[in-house]
Write a protein that binds this DNA or RNA. Structure first.
Lengths: 228, 228
DNA sequence: TTGAAACATGAACCGGGTTTCAACTTTACA
DNA sequence: TGTAAAGTTGAAACCCGGTTCATGTTTCAA
Protein backbone atom coordinates (compact mmCIF):
# COMPACT_ATOMS: atom_id res chain seq x y z
CA UNK A 1 0.00 0.00 0.00
CA UNK A 2 2.47 2.59 1.12
CA UNK A 3 4.68 1.15 -1.57
CA UNK A 4 2.37 1.95 -4.41
CA UNK A 5 1.65 5.42 -3.07
CA UNK A 6 5.35 6.16 -2.94
CA UNK A 7 5.94 5.06 -6.45
CA UNK A 8 3.07 7.15 -7.70
CA UNK A 9 4.10 10.30 -5.92
CA UNK A 10 7.78 9.97 -6.74
CA UNK A 11 7.08 10.03 -10.41
CA UNK A 12 5.82 13.60 -10.22
CA UNK A 13 8.45 15.00 -7.85
CA UNK A 14 12.22 14.93 -8.09
CA UNK A 15 13.33 17.97 -10.04
CA UNK A 16 17.00 18.11 -10.95
CA UNK A 17 19.30 18.69 -8.03
CA UNK A 18 16.73 17.93 -5.40
CA UNK A 19 17.40 15.44 -2.72
CA UNK A 20 14.83 12.78 -2.05
CA UNK A 21 12.80 12.88 1.11
CA UNK A 22 11.58 9.33 1.46
CA UNK A 23 12.86 8.73 4.95
CA UNK A 24 11.12 11.83 6.20
CA UNK A 25 7.92 10.73 4.55
CA UNK A 26 8.15 7.42 6.35
CA UNK A 27 9.09 9.11 9.62
CA UNK A 28 6.08 11.38 9.46
CA UNK A 29 4.00 8.41 8.47
CA UNK A 30 4.96 6.43 11.55
CA UNK A 31 3.78 9.37 13.54
CA UNK A 32 0.05 8.96 13.55
CA UNK A 33 -0.25 11.66 10.94
CA UNK A 34 0.41 9.52 7.93
CA UNK A 35 -1.32 10.48 4.71
CA UNK A 36 -3.87 7.88 3.59
CA UNK A 37 -4.30 9.12 0.14
CA UNK A 38 -2.16 9.80 -2.89
CA UNK A 39 -3.10 13.44 -2.64
CA UNK A 40 -2.06 13.43 0.98
CA UNK A 41 1.33 11.99 0.24
CA UNK A 42 1.89 14.50 -2.50
CA UNK A 43 1.10 17.35 -0.12
CA UNK A 44 3.35 15.94 2.55
CA UNK A 45 6.20 15.77 0.08
CA UNK A 46 5.61 19.33 -1.03
CA UNK A 47 5.75 20.48 2.56
CA UNK A 48 8.91 18.53 3.30
CA UNK A 49 10.66 19.88 0.24
CA UNK A 50 9.61 23.40 1.10
CA UNK A 51 10.74 22.96 4.69
CA UNK A 52 14.15 21.80 3.51
CA UNK A 53 14.53 24.96 1.45
CA UNK A 54 13.15 27.26 4.11
CA UNK A 55 15.30 25.88 6.92
CA UNK A 56 18.24 25.66 4.56
CA UNK A 57 18.32 29.27 3.66
CA UNK A 58 16.89 31.05 6.67
CA UNK A 59 18.03 28.81 9.49
CA UNK A 60 15.74 27.29 12.08
CA UNK A 61 14.69 30.33 14.02
CA UNK A 62 14.18 32.65 11.06
CA UNK A 63 12.29 29.98 9.21
CA UNK A 64 8.54 30.21 9.63
CA UNK A 65 5.58 27.96 9.00
CA UNK A 66 4.16 30.59 6.69
CA UNK A 67 7.44 30.51 4.83
CA UNK A 68 7.18 26.77 4.46
CA UNK A 69 3.55 26.64 3.43
CA UNK A 70 3.84 29.47 0.98
CA UNK A 71 6.84 27.84 -0.69
CA UNK A 72 4.83 24.64 -0.81
CA UNK A 73 1.81 26.54 -2.09
CA UNK A 74 -0.55 25.11 0.47
CA UNK A 75 -2.56 26.84 3.16
CA UNK A 76 -1.07 27.55 6.54
CA UNK A 77 -3.34 25.11 8.33
CA UNK A 78 -2.41 22.27 6.04
CA UNK A 79 0.94 22.10 7.72
CA UNK A 80 -0.72 20.89 10.90
CA UNK A 81 -2.37 18.02 9.09
CA UNK A 82 1.06 16.43 8.89
CA UNK A 83 3.11 17.81 11.73
CA UNK A 84 2.40 18.84 15.29
CA UNK A 85 4.98 21.58 15.39
CA UNK A 86 7.83 23.36 13.71
CA UNK A 87 10.29 21.30 15.67
CA UNK A 88 8.78 18.09 14.44
CA UNK A 89 9.31 18.82 10.74
CA UNK A 90 12.84 19.74 11.50
CA UNK A 91 13.42 16.43 13.22
CA UNK A 92 11.91 14.55 10.34
CA UNK A 93 14.22 16.42 8.02
CA UNK A 94 17.29 15.69 10.12
CA UNK A 95 16.67 11.96 10.03
CA UNK A 96 16.17 12.19 6.35
CA UNK A 97 19.26 14.23 5.64
CA UNK A 98 21.32 11.85 7.71
CA UNK A 99 20.07 9.11 5.46
CA UNK A 100 20.73 11.14 2.35
CA UNK A 101 24.35 11.58 3.22
CA UNK A 102 24.80 7.90 3.84
CA UNK A 103 22.95 7.01 0.66
CA UNK A 104 25.17 9.27 -1.45
CA UNK A 105 28.42 8.09 0.04
CA UNK A 106 27.77 4.35 0.12
CA UNK A 107 27.77 3.65 -3.62
CA UNK A 108 31.12 5.41 -4.05
CA UNK A 109 32.77 2.79 -1.86
CA UNK A 110 32.15 0.04 -4.39
CA UNK A 111 35.06 1.13 -6.52
CA UNK A 112 37.61 1.12 -3.73
CA UNK A 113 40.82 -0.79 -4.37
CA UNK A 114 41.47 -1.14 -0.66
CA UNK A 115 40.48 0.22 2.74
CA UNK A 116 42.39 3.48 2.60
CA UNK A 117 41.16 4.11 -0.88
CA UNK A 118 37.63 3.65 0.39
CA UNK A 119 38.13 6.53 2.77
CA UNK A 120 39.38 8.71 -0.03
CA UNK A 121 36.35 7.91 -2.16
CA UNK A 122 34.01 8.45 0.77
CA UNK A 123 35.42 11.90 1.38
CA UNK A 124 35.29 12.86 -2.28
CA UNK A 125 31.67 11.75 -2.48
CA UNK A 126 30.83 13.65 0.67
CA UNK A 127 32.47 16.81 -0.64
CA UNK A 128 30.56 16.58 -3.87
CA UNK A 129 27.32 16.08 -2.03
CA UNK A 130 27.97 18.94 0.39
CA UNK A 131 28.82 21.32 -2.43
CA UNK A 132 25.63 20.48 -4.23
CA UNK A 133 23.43 20.46 -1.16
CA UNK A 134 24.60 23.07 1.27
CA UNK A 135 21.12 23.08 2.81
CA UNK A 136 21.65 19.52 3.90
CA UNK A 137 24.95 20.35 5.52
CA UNK A 138 23.40 23.28 7.30
CA UNK A 139 20.42 21.39 8.61
CA UNK A 140 22.55 18.65 10.09
CA UNK A 141 24.78 21.22 11.74
CA UNK A 142 21.91 23.16 13.17
CA UNK A 143 20.46 19.96 14.56
CA UNK A 144 23.06 20.19 17.29
CA UNK A 145 20.76 22.72 18.89
CA UNK A 146 17.31 21.98 17.58
CA UNK A 147 17.39 18.19 17.62
CA UNK A 148 20.36 17.08 19.71
CA UNK A 149 19.28 13.46 19.70
CA UNK A 150 19.06 13.36 15.93
CA UNK A 151 22.39 15.13 15.65
CA UNK A 152 24.13 12.73 17.96
CA UNK A 153 22.61 9.72 16.28
CA UNK A 154 23.81 10.93 12.92
CA UNK A 155 27.40 11.27 14.00
CA UNK A 156 27.49 8.14 16.09
CA UNK A 157 26.19 6.16 13.15
CA UNK A 158 28.65 7.74 10.80
CA UNK A 159 31.57 7.14 13.13
CA UNK A 160 30.38 3.57 13.58
CA UNK A 161 30.46 2.98 9.85
CA UNK A 162 33.97 4.40 9.55
CA UNK A 163 35.14 2.28 12.46
CA UNK A 164 33.70 -0.83 10.86
CA UNK A 165 35.50 -0.16 7.61
CA UNK A 166 38.78 0.39 9.42
CA UNK A 167 38.35 -2.79 11.43
CA UNK A 168 37.93 -4.76 8.27
CA UNK A 169 41.01 -3.21 6.70
CA UNK A 170 42.95 -3.91 9.87
CA UNK A 171 41.97 -7.56 9.73
CA UNK A 172 43.29 -7.76 6.22
CA UNK A 173 46.59 -6.40 7.51
CA UNK A 174 46.36 -3.37 5.32
CA UNK A 175 46.44 -0.81 8.08
CA UNK A 176 48.28 -0.92 11.35
CA UNK A 177 46.26 -1.70 14.42
CA UNK A 178 46.92 -1.32 18.06
CA UNK A 179 44.22 -3.24 19.84
CA UNK A 180 43.01 -0.39 22.01
CA UNK A 181 39.31 0.35 21.70
CA UNK A 182 39.99 3.97 22.51
CA UNK A 183 42.45 4.32 19.66
CA UNK A 184 39.93 2.85 17.24
CA UNK A 185 37.22 5.26 18.30
CA UNK A 186 39.57 8.22 18.31
CA UNK A 187 40.62 7.36 14.79
CA UNK A 188 37.08 7.13 13.51
CA UNK A 189 36.04 10.41 15.09
CA UNK A 190 39.17 12.17 13.92
CA UNK A 191 38.55 11.10 10.33
CA UNK A 192 34.93 12.12 10.55
CA UNK A 193 35.75 15.51 12.04
CA UNK A 194 38.37 16.14 9.40
CA UNK A 195 35.87 15.28 6.69
CA UNK A 196 33.20 17.54 8.09
CA UNK A 197 35.52 20.52 8.33
CA UNK A 198 36.95 19.91 4.90
CA UNK A 199 33.36 19.93 3.73
CA UNK A 200 32.77 23.25 5.41
CA UNK A 201 35.92 24.85 4.09
CA UNK A 202 36.10 23.47 0.56
CA UNK A 203 32.54 22.53 -0.32
CA UNK A 204 30.24 24.87 1.58
CA UNK A 205 32.47 27.96 1.61
CA UNK A 206 35.28 27.78 -0.86
CA UNK A 207 35.62 25.66 -3.89
CA UNK A 208 38.31 23.11 -3.78
CA UNK A 209 38.18 20.30 -6.25
CA UNK A 210 36.72 17.34 -4.34
CA UNK A 211 39.19 14.86 -5.78
CA UNK A 212 42.24 16.98 -5.05
CA UNK A 213 41.12 17.72 -1.52
CA UNK A 214 40.31 14.09 -0.90
CA UNK A 215 43.65 13.01 -2.29
CA UNK A 216 45.55 15.41 -0.04
CA UNK A 217 43.59 14.34 3.00
CA UNK A 218 44.11 10.71 2.13
CA UNK A 219 47.84 11.07 1.96
CA UNK A 220 47.78 12.58 5.41
CA UNK A 221 45.66 9.73 6.63
CA UNK A 222 47.81 6.96 5.25
CA UNK A 223 51.32 8.32 5.68
CA UNK A 224 50.99 10.82 8.48
CA UNK A 225 53.13 13.87 8.83
CA UNK A 226 56.42 12.60 10.28
CA UNK A 227 59.42 12.89 7.99
CA UNK A 228 60.75 9.59 6.70
CA UNK B 1 41.84 55.03 32.07
CA UNK B 2 40.13 51.90 30.76
CA UNK B 3 43.14 50.12 32.18
CA UNK B 4 42.52 51.14 35.74
CA UNK B 5 38.84 50.39 35.47
CA UNK B 6 39.60 46.90 34.26
CA UNK B 7 41.94 46.19 37.08
CA UNK B 8 39.44 47.40 39.61
CA UNK B 9 36.53 45.42 38.25
CA UNK B 10 38.53 42.26 37.74
CA UNK B 11 39.43 42.07 41.36
CA UNK B 12 35.83 41.55 42.37
CA UNK B 13 34.84 39.08 39.63
CA UNK B 14 36.43 35.83 38.58
CA UNK B 15 34.88 33.04 40.63
CA UNK B 16 36.49 29.61 40.29
CA UNK B 17 35.89 27.95 36.94
CA UNK B 18 34.71 31.07 35.22
CA UNK B 19 36.22 32.18 32.01
CA UNK B 20 37.29 35.77 31.71
CA UNK B 21 35.38 38.12 29.48
CA UNK B 22 37.83 40.88 28.84
CA UNK B 23 37.71 40.78 25.08
CA UNK B 24 33.95 41.10 25.13
CA UNK B 25 34.21 44.03 27.48
CA UNK B 26 36.56 45.73 25.06
CA UNK B 27 34.38 44.82 22.10
CA UNK B 28 31.33 46.32 23.71
CA UNK B 29 33.43 49.29 24.70
CA UNK B 30 34.48 50.02 21.13
CA UNK B 31 30.82 50.05 20.29
CA UNK B 32 29.72 53.49 21.41
CA UNK B 33 28.13 51.95 24.48
CA UNK B 34 31.23 51.76 26.59
CA UNK B 35 30.82 52.11 30.32
CA UNK B 36 32.47 55.28 31.65
CA UNK B 37 32.40 54.36 35.24
CA UNK B 38 33.65 51.58 37.45
CA UNK B 39 30.06 50.77 38.32
CA UNK B 40 29.24 50.63 34.63
CA UNK B 41 32.02 48.21 33.87
CA UNK B 42 30.99 45.99 36.74
CA UNK B 43 27.45 45.86 35.43
CA UNK B 44 28.63 45.14 31.92
CA UNK B 45 30.69 42.25 33.21
CA UNK B 46 27.77 40.87 35.17
CA UNK B 47 25.63 40.96 32.05
CA UNK B 48 28.27 39.30 29.92
CA UNK B 49 28.82 36.55 32.45
CA UNK B 50 25.09 36.00 32.75
CA UNK B 51 24.71 35.95 28.98
CA UNK B 52 27.40 33.31 28.69
CA UNK B 53 25.52 31.10 31.12
CA UNK B 54 22.12 31.77 29.63
CA UNK B 55 23.20 31.11 26.03
CA UNK B 56 25.28 28.19 27.18
CA UNK B 57 22.49 26.29 28.75
CA UNK B 58 19.41 27.31 26.82
CA UNK B 59 20.86 27.95 23.38
CA UNK B 60 20.42 31.15 21.43
CA UNK B 61 16.75 31.04 20.63
CA UNK B 62 15.54 29.81 24.01
CA UNK B 63 17.72 32.28 25.79
CA UNK B 64 15.95 35.51 26.70
CA UNK B 65 16.97 38.97 27.77
CA UNK B 66 14.94 38.50 30.92
CA UNK B 67 16.90 35.33 31.55
CA UNK B 68 20.14 37.21 31.17
CA UNK B 69 19.19 40.19 33.29
CA UNK B 70 17.70 38.13 36.06
CA UNK B 71 20.82 35.96 36.26
CA UNK B 72 22.85 39.15 36.35
CA UNK B 73 20.48 40.63 38.93
CA UNK B 74 19.94 43.84 37.05
CA UNK B 75 16.79 45.32 35.61
CA UNK B 76 15.60 44.39 32.16
CA UNK B 77 16.22 47.84 30.77
CA UNK B 78 19.81 47.89 31.94
CA UNK B 79 20.67 45.43 29.24
CA UNK B 80 20.00 48.06 26.60
CA UNK B 81 22.43 50.45 28.20
CA UNK B 82 25.20 48.18 26.92
CA UNK B 83 23.84 46.35 23.93
CA UNK B 84 21.47 47.18 21.13
CA UNK B 85 20.09 43.71 20.76
CA UNK B 86 20.23 40.08 21.74
CA UNK B 87 22.27 39.33 18.66
CA UNK B 88 24.87 41.88 19.62
CA UNK B 89 25.69 40.34 23.00
CA UNK B 90 25.98 37.03 21.34
CA UNK B 91 28.49 38.40 18.86
CA UNK B 92 30.51 40.00 21.61
CA UNK B 93 30.56 36.67 23.36
CA UNK B 94 31.65 34.79 20.27
CA UNK B 95 34.67 37.02 19.76
CA UNK B 96 35.50 36.59 23.38
CA UNK B 97 35.16 32.83 23.43
CA UNK B 98 37.30 32.57 20.35
CA UNK B 99 39.94 34.45 22.26
CA UNK B 100 39.47 32.29 25.33
CA UNK B 101 40.18 29.13 23.42
CA UNK B 102 43.33 30.57 21.93
CA UNK B 103 44.45 31.91 25.29
CA UNK B 104 44.03 28.54 26.96
CA UNK B 105 45.80 26.57 24.28
CA UNK B 106 48.75 28.87 23.63
CA UNK B 107 50.62 28.41 26.93
CA UNK B 108 50.50 24.62 26.57
CA UNK B 109 52.68 24.86 23.49
CA UNK B 110 55.66 26.15 25.43
CA UNK B 111 56.52 22.67 26.66
CA UNK B 112 56.56 21.07 23.23
CA UNK B 113 59.65 19.04 22.36
CA UNK B 114 58.96 19.43 18.66
CA UNK B 115 56.30 20.35 16.15
CA UNK B 116 54.26 17.17 16.31
CA UNK B 117 54.40 17.22 20.06
CA UNK B 118 53.03 20.74 19.97
CA UNK B 119 49.93 19.47 18.19
CA UNK B 120 49.48 16.82 20.82
CA UNK B 121 49.70 19.35 23.62
CA UNK B 122 47.39 21.74 21.81
CA UNK B 123 44.74 19.05 21.49
CA UNK B 124 45.08 17.98 25.10
CA UNK B 125 44.71 21.57 26.25
CA UNK B 126 41.72 22.06 24.04
CA UNK B 127 40.05 18.92 25.36
CA UNK B 128 40.60 20.01 28.92
CA UNK B 129 39.19 23.42 28.19
CA UNK B 130 36.15 22.05 26.35
CA UNK B 131 35.38 19.64 29.17
CA UNK B 132 35.49 22.40 31.71
CA UNK B 133 33.64 24.96 29.60
CA UNK B 134 31.03 23.23 27.53
CA UNK B 135 29.19 26.57 27.27
CA UNK B 136 32.10 27.98 25.34
CA UNK B 137 32.10 25.08 22.95
CA UNK B 138 28.38 25.43 22.43
CA UNK B 139 28.44 29.14 21.79
CA UNK B 140 31.12 28.87 19.16
CA UNK B 141 29.21 26.10 17.45
CA UNK B 142 25.95 27.97 17.50
CA UNK B 143 27.70 31.00 16.04
CA UNK B 144 27.58 29.20 12.69
CA UNK B 145 23.98 30.36 12.51
CA UNK B 146 23.76 33.39 14.73
CA UNK B 147 27.03 35.08 13.86
CA UNK B 148 28.43 33.48 10.71
CA UNK B 149 31.15 36.07 10.32
CA UNK B 150 32.41 35.51 13.85
CA UNK B 151 32.24 31.78 13.37
CA UNK B 152 34.20 31.86 10.17
CA UNK B 153 36.78 34.22 11.59
CA UNK B 154 37.31 31.92 14.54
CA UNK B 155 38.02 28.89 12.42
CA UNK B 156 40.07 30.69 9.83
CA UNK B 157 42.25 32.12 12.55
CA UNK B 158 42.61 28.77 14.22
CA UNK B 159 43.47 27.02 10.98
CA UNK B 160 45.95 29.77 10.22
CA UNK B 161 47.72 29.20 13.50
CA UNK B 162 47.94 25.47 12.91
CA UNK B 163 49.25 26.03 9.41
CA UNK B 164 51.93 28.38 10.70
CA UNK B 165 53.10 25.83 13.25
CA UNK B 166 53.28 23.14 10.60
CA UNK B 167 55.20 25.39 8.23
CA UNK B 168 57.79 26.00 10.88
CA UNK B 169 58.14 22.29 11.61
CA UNK B 170 58.45 21.60 7.91
CA UNK B 171 61.24 24.10 7.61
CA UNK B 172 63.09 22.32 10.36
CA UNK B 173 62.77 19.13 8.36
CA UNK B 174 60.77 17.48 11.08
CA UNK B 175 57.68 16.78 9.04
CA UNK B 176 57.38 15.93 5.42
CA UNK B 177 56.27 18.65 3.10
CA UNK B 178 54.97 18.68 -0.40
CA UNK B 179 55.02 22.27 -1.52
CA UNK B 180 51.36 22.44 -2.53
CA UNK B 181 49.44 25.23 -0.86
CA UNK B 182 46.29 23.14 -1.10
CA UNK B 183 47.87 20.27 0.79
CA UNK B 184 48.98 22.62 3.54
CA UNK B 185 45.54 24.07 3.97
CA UNK B 186 43.86 20.68 3.78
CA UNK B 187 46.17 19.43 6.49
CA UNK B 188 45.45 22.34 8.80
CA UNK B 189 41.69 22.05 8.37
CA UNK B 190 41.77 18.29 8.77
CA UNK B 191 43.64 18.58 12.05
CA UNK B 192 41.31 21.28 13.28
CA UNK B 193 38.21 19.31 12.34
CA UNK B 194 39.52 16.23 14.02
CA UNK B 195 40.23 18.23 17.17
CA UNK B 196 36.79 19.77 17.24
CA UNK B 197 35.04 16.45 16.85
CA UNK B 198 37.24 14.77 19.41
CA UNK B 199 36.25 17.62 21.71
CA UNK B 200 32.61 16.95 21.04
CA UNK B 201 32.85 13.22 21.54
CA UNK B 202 35.29 12.96 24.44
CA UNK B 203 35.04 16.30 26.24
CA UNK B 204 31.51 17.59 25.74
CA UNK B 205 29.68 14.26 25.62
CA UNK B 206 31.73 11.41 26.94
CA UNK B 207 34.70 11.45 29.16
CA UNK B 208 37.89 10.33 27.62
CA UNK B 209 41.08 11.23 29.36
CA UNK B 210 42.44 14.24 27.47
CA UNK B 211 46.00 12.94 27.45
CA UNK B 212 45.07 9.50 26.21
CA UNK B 213 42.84 10.85 23.49
CA UNK B 214 45.46 13.35 22.43
CA UNK B 215 48.13 10.67 22.37
CA UNK B 216 46.03 8.40 20.18
CA UNK B 217 45.20 11.21 17.80
CA UNK B 218 48.82 12.26 17.68
CA UNK B 219 49.99 8.84 16.67
CA UNK B 220 47.50 8.90 13.82
CA UNK B 221 48.77 12.31 12.80
CA UNK B 222 52.42 11.43 12.80
CA UNK B 223 52.42 7.86 11.51
CA UNK B 224 49.22 7.59 9.56
CA UNK B 225 47.29 4.41 9.16
CA UNK B 226 49.14 2.47 6.48
CA UNK B 227 50.81 -0.75 7.66
CA UNK B 228 54.60 -0.60 7.73
C1' DT C 1 -24.24 7.84 -7.04
C1' DT C 2 -23.60 8.77 -2.42
C1' DG C 3 -21.95 9.46 2.13
C1' DA C 4 -18.20 9.20 5.27
C1' DA C 5 -13.48 9.99 5.85
C1' DA C 6 -9.55 12.52 4.46
C1' DC C 7 -7.76 16.70 3.29
C1' DA C 8 -7.40 21.92 2.62
C1' DT C 9 -8.29 26.60 3.92
C1' DG C 10 -7.00 31.08 6.31
C1' DA C 11 -8.82 34.28 9.71
C1' DA C 12 -8.26 34.81 14.36
C1' DC C 13 -6.34 33.66 18.66
C1' DC C 14 -2.62 33.75 21.78
C1' DG C 15 1.56 33.85 24.37
C1' DG C 16 6.00 35.21 24.80
C1' DG C 17 9.84 37.92 24.08
C1' DT C 18 12.19 42.19 22.51
C1' DT C 19 12.55 46.88 22.89
C1' DT C 20 11.30 51.59 24.55
C1' DC C 21 11.00 55.23 27.81
C1' DA C 22 10.19 58.59 31.44
C1' DA C 23 11.16 58.77 36.20
C1' DC C 24 14.61 57.99 39.56
C1' DT C 25 19.40 57.10 41.81
C1' DT C 26 24.27 57.14 41.88
C1' DT C 27 28.77 58.81 40.49
C1' DA C 28 32.31 62.00 39.18
C1' DC C 29 34.42 66.17 39.37
C1' DA C 30 34.98 71.13 39.97
C1' DT D 1 28.77 70.61 48.25
C1' DG D 2 26.31 71.01 43.95
C1' DT D 3 25.14 69.59 39.53
C1' DA D 4 25.65 67.44 35.13
C1' DA D 5 26.50 63.00 33.31
C1' DA D 6 26.14 58.15 33.79
C1' DG D 7 23.64 54.45 35.09
C1' DT D 8 19.29 51.90 36.74
C1' DT D 9 14.59 50.66 36.87
C1' DG D 10 10.40 47.91 35.34
C1' DA D 11 5.95 48.71 33.44
C1' DA D 12 4.01 48.79 29.10
C1' DA D 13 4.08 49.18 24.10
C1' DC D 14 4.85 46.52 20.36
C1' DC D 15 5.60 42.79 17.31
C1' DC D 16 5.65 38.44 15.43
C1' DG D 17 4.96 33.90 14.55
C1' DG D 18 3.09 29.32 16.15
C1' DT D 19 -1.13 27.04 16.69
C1' DT D 20 -6.23 26.31 16.54
C1' DC D 21 -10.57 25.51 14.48
C1' DA D 22 -14.94 25.88 12.06
C1' DT D 23 -16.05 25.65 7.38
C1' DG D 24 -15.59 24.01 2.76
C1' DT D 25 -13.74 20.69 -0.77
C1' DT D 26 -11.96 16.33 -2.59
C1' DT D 27 -11.31 11.43 -2.53
C1' DC D 28 -12.61 6.73 -2.27
C1' DA D 29 -15.11 2.59 -1.78
C1' DA D 30 -19.38 0.50 -1.64
Amino acid sequence: MAQSLSREARSEGGQRGDVAIDTAVRAAASDGKAPRTARGERTLRKILRAALQEFGDRGYSDASIVGITSRAKVALGTFYTYFDSKEEVFQALVRDMSDQVRAHVAPALKDARDGLDAERLALAAFLRFAAEHKEVYRIIDEAEFVDPAGFRAHYENTAGRIAARLAKAAQGGEIRLDGSALAAEVTAWAIMGANVFLGLRFAVWGNGDPDEVAAAANRLLSEGLAAR
